[in-house]
């Protein structure tokens, strides 16, 4: 059976440049000027999972992102990596969305362009790392959803999964359609090559606005977000930084003294 797969990705600021992030003390917004946007690392694992399945069982991989139009190039990158089609959900009305509103918007686009057999996401985004969109997408779509996936196989309409837990792993079988959140363990994403890159520009990339989607305007963007951001700040972690000097033995004695003081029995 050919698989029609949707993959949700999120363009995020490149973590290599996090040192450039600063907070404006007046406006209380964070400044990320000069930081390139990239497709999150985990999202590439999600895309690879979809491409692997498509390459083996035929079908189609469609990529979705909800982001400003400036992130179009990130979607072209996904197409260059091998996705067949991309949808960029971009509208002022989507701005300020939390995970509930984001997943609602994505679900609407998936419903409109579907049906899909599988929806794959990274377990969490690289920037906010909330790890909420995957499960919430499943809820909006009314599909079973599973996260923390370390292994993904497919056989005759059934997805076989391994999922990491605190004390080991659990294997699941899930009936399609379903929403899956994958971890880095699930695969090694392919590198984009020149041929893929050149094909990407001729693949369909459509921008969808709020009016194109079956969304309830009260459930998108800032209006549809139950959570609201407040203050932002840099973590403060000042400590006294007293230097201990001496021979290794003297230093060891001091460490043992501190261990005792901290209540550790030695």
């Amino acid at each position: 059976m050919a698989l029609n797969i949707a993959v949700c990705v999120k363009p995020v600021p490149d973590s290599k440049h996090y040192d450039k992030i600063s907070i404006d003390p007046v406006t209380k917004t964070w400044n990320r000027t000069g930081i390139p946007m990239i497709i999150g690392d985990l999202d590439k694992h999600a895309l690879e999972a979809a491409l692997t399945l498509r390459d083996k069982f035929q079908g189609k991989v469609t990529v979705f992102t909800m982001a400003p139009e400036s992130t179009r190039d990130n979607l072209v990158e996904a197409l260059a990596m091998g996705a067949d089609e991309a949808f960029l959900l971009s509208d002022k009305a989507f701005a300020g969305a939390d995970t509930l509103a984001t997943s609602h918007t994505l679900a609407a686009a998936i419903t409109k362009t579907g049906p899909y057999d599988l929806i794959i996401t990274g377990n969490e985004s690289d920037d906010g790392s909330t790890g909420q969109v995957s499960a919430q997408l499943g809820e909006w779509l009314g599909m079973p959803h599973i996260m923390n996936i370390t292994h993904l196989g497919y056989q005759e309409g059934v997805i076989e999964l391994s999922v990491v837990t605190e004390n080991g792993s659990v294997n699941y079988e899930v009936v399609l359609p379903a929403v899956l959140g994958v971890t880095r363990k699930v695969n090694k994403p392919r590198l984009t090559n020149v041929m893929g890159m050149l094909k990407a520009r001729s693949k369909p990339l459509t921008i969808l606005k709020a009016e194109d989607l079956p969304v309830d305007v009260r459930q998108i963007g800032l209006t549809g977000s139950p959570t609201q951001p407040g203050d932002i700040y840099s973590p403060k972690m000042g400590r006294k930084t007293e230097e201990i000097t001496g021979s290794p033995e003297e230093i060891a004695d001091r460490i043992i003294l501190e261990l005792r003081k901290a209540g550790i029995s030695v």
Partner: peptide, 20 residues
């Protein structure tokens, strides 16, 4: 691992906010 999946599931069902 369980809670991180359960919490957004429930929040979506209740249409309420969740901070991770």
């Amino acid at each position: 691992f369980t809670g991180s999946e359960l919490a957004p599931t429930v929040a979506a069902k209740l249409k309420t906010g969740l901070a991770a």
